[in-house]
Design a protein around this nucleic acid. Structure first.
Lengths: 223, 223
DNA sequence: CGCTTTTTGTACCATTTCGCAAATAATCCT
DNA sequence: AGGATTATTTGCGAAATGGTACAAAAAGCG
């Protein structure tokens, strides 16, 4: 199918329409909040995957008709990439937030995995796992944009964890011979397996036990 | 859409038509080999995921027309589940095959990850990762059959690895305090992250280094 | 050879899918 | 009030999708 030129779509979500901060723009007011809609779109993608989610699904989840979705976010792939970017940014904020009181590595890792499990298993007990692993891994082989996103996301997690592990080693929390990059990848591996297991319906208690093993393996036995 | 009763489909692939072993059955001969077709179907599912793979894709990959696919394997979901079961059986055979000469744990783990990487990255350099993680993880949330398969598959891998690790501990290759189940899950976590990373296009050398860290972390430094 | 059985091939179906055009609605500006 | 601007709604189109009916092909059997 021939791709038709986009008509003015890139402008749609650019301007703000917060009633308190700015005078009202001309034209009909929006019936949706972009961030809320993006979160709702991510939820349905999260459950059904990219290919398994139709525009009708997205319309129902967001409460927006399809032309509005297109006007606000662009085509299906573009919307999906936006949800991925949003997820990653939120994860980045949450992760760095765990470091504000400069905790020991063990404490950080416990928080890190607890936060991940809170995300991977909803309050209702629904198992969705990691959004990136659960959806982008499948798309990555056939879609170069998703693949690039996935690779960069993993690299970012590796680097983030390696930085923290290197600092812990320099503080004497780990042996001097410890390899921050290697251990970071091991820790990231646990994150990925938690994601896959959560999606498989593995109970939270088992996932917590797995996270604990990783913390002990990296930081040494607690005594 | 109302599901219509299947007409004789369950019988289609039941009988063998090996020319050497049995007399020829009545009727037109099959133009395909079931195992070859199943492997070809898995290849395309592996690349595009379940929902991203159409019946036309499957027909092109297998060289069979759609009615023939239905007659031979049942509907799309049933075919997919059959490819999952096949993948798992082949992995089981390959894994147990690594144990025939009763290797030390370190040697076994090196072989195990090497074998996985050989599977996750094709000879052409195409990155496909693990079939189960790469495709079933996405489907699992919305499809209970896939979820059950995924959970059981993970449990099987955990148990297999735990058995080997327990034996190594009993042989004195690991400290007496080592936790076979925990370490097995850690090792499985590395398998999962290798799968995701392969699918993201991470070069093989990096994946090999990650596998090596896991081996050293579980078995201790090599000296 | 005609009949039966099994498989393939062609054509088709009902529905879904992604994306868009145009009319209408709801606002601001002059 | 009319015009301009922006968003929503309704309806639609072209193509794709999973699945099936049936005729034809290719075999074995008596």
């Amino acid at each position: 199918m021939v791709q038709k030129a986009a008509k003015g779509r890139d402008k749609a979500p650019a301007a703000r329409d917060e009633p308190a901060a700015e005078p009202r723009r001309r034209g009909r007011p929006r019936a949706y909040d972009p961030e809320t809609a993006l979160a709702a779109a991510a939820e349905i993608f999260w459950k059904k995957g990219y290919d398994g989610t139709s525009l009708d699904d997205l319309a129902a989840a967001t409460g927006m008709n399809r032309p509005s979705l297109y006007a606000a976010f662009g085509d299906k792939q573009t919307l999906y990439l936006k949800t991925l970017a949003r997820y990653r940014e939120e994860a980045r904020i949450a992760s760095t937030g765990l470091l504000t009181d400069d905790p020991p590595l063990r404490v950080f890792l416990k928080r890190f995995y607890k936060g991940a499990l809170n995300l991977y298993i909803t309050r209702d007990g629904d198992a969705r796992g990691c959004y990136t692993v659960g959806t982008a891994a499948t798309q990555a082989v056939a879609d170069p944009k998703v693949r690039a996103f996935l690779a960069e996301s993993i690299r970012g997690t590796d680097a983030f964890l390696a930085g923290i592990i290197a600092k812990a080693r320099d503080k004497g929390e780990l042996p001097r011979a410890a390899d921050p990059q290697g251990l970071a990848q091991l820790a990231c591996g646990t994150l990925h397996t938690l994601a896959v297991r959560a999606r498989a319906g593995v109970p939270r208690k088992e996932l917590e036990a797995l996270a604990a093993v990783t913390v002990e393996t990296i930081c040494g036995s607690e005594r």
